[in-house]
Simulated scan of single mutants.
Amino acid sequence: MTPRPATNSFGRALASHAILIAYTVIALFPVLVIVVNSFKQRNAIFRSPLSLPNSETFSLVGYETVMAQGDFLHYFQNSLVVTVASLFFVLLFGAMAAFALSEYRFRGNSLMGLYLALGIMIPIRLGTVAILQLMVAGGLVNTLTALILVYTAQGLPLAVFILSEFMKQVSDDLKNAGRIDGLSEYTIFFRLVLPLVRPAMATVAVFTMIPIWNDLWFPLILAPAEETKTVTLGAQVFIGQFVTNWNAVLSALSLAILPVLVLYIIFSRQLIAGITAGAVK
Rank of each mutant, 00 (worst) to 15 (best):
M1E: 15
T2Y: 10
R4A: 14
T7E: 07
G11A: 10
L14R: 14
L14Q: 09
A15S: 12
S16I: 12
S16N: 12
H17E: 09
A22E: 09
T24A: 15
T24D: 00
V25C: 10
I26H: 06
A27D: 07
P30Y: 06
P30M: 09
N37D: 03
S38Y: 02
K40Y: 05
K40R: 10
L52F: 11
P53C: 08
F58L: 15
L60K: 09
E64W: 10
E64K: 15
A68P: 08
A68I: 01
A68G: 12
A68S: 15
A68N: 14
G70E: 06
D71L: 11
H74W: 07
H74M: 14
F76R: 09
Q77V: 15
N78W: 00
V81P: 02
V82I: 15
T83K: 02
A85W: 09
S86E: 06
S86Y: 04
S86F: 02
L92R: 04
A95M: 04
A97S: 12
A100V: 07
A100R: 04
Y104Q: 14
Y104T: 08
R107Q: 11
G108D: 05
N109E: 13
L111E: 12
G113D: 08
L114K: 05
L114G: 11
L116S: 07
A117L: 15
G119I: 01
G119E: 04
M121I: 14
I122H: 02
I122S: 05
I122A: 04
I124A: 03
R125L: 11
G127S: 10
G127W: 02
V129M: 09
A130V: 08
A130S: 15
I131P: 00
Q133H: 12
L134A: 14
M135S: 07
G138F: 10
L140M: 14
V141Y: 05
L144I: 10
L149D: 04
V150K: 02
T152C: 00
G155A: 05
G155I: 04
G155L: 04
V160A: 07
L163E: 00
S164A: 13
L174E: 04
K175A: 09
A177G: 13
A177K: 05
G182K: 03
L183M: 14
L183Y: 07
Y186M: 14
F189S: 01
F189N: 00
F190V: 12
R191S: 13
P195G: 07
R198V: 13
A202D: 11
A202T: 14
T203H: 06
V204E: 01
M209T: 07
P211K: 00
W213C: 03
N214D: 13
F218N: 02
L222I: 09
P224A: 10
P224E: 05
E226N: 12
T230A: 03
G234F: 05
A235F: 01
Q236E: 11
F238Q: 04
Q241K: 13
Q241I: 08
Q241M: 10
T244F: 13
W246P: 03
N247C: 03
N247A: 07
V249N: 05
S251K: 00
S251R: 04
L258Q: 06
V260D: 01
V260Y: 00
L261G: 03
Y264R: 08
Y264L: 10
R269M: 11
I272F: 07
T276Q: 10
A277R: 04
G278N: 08
K281S: 10
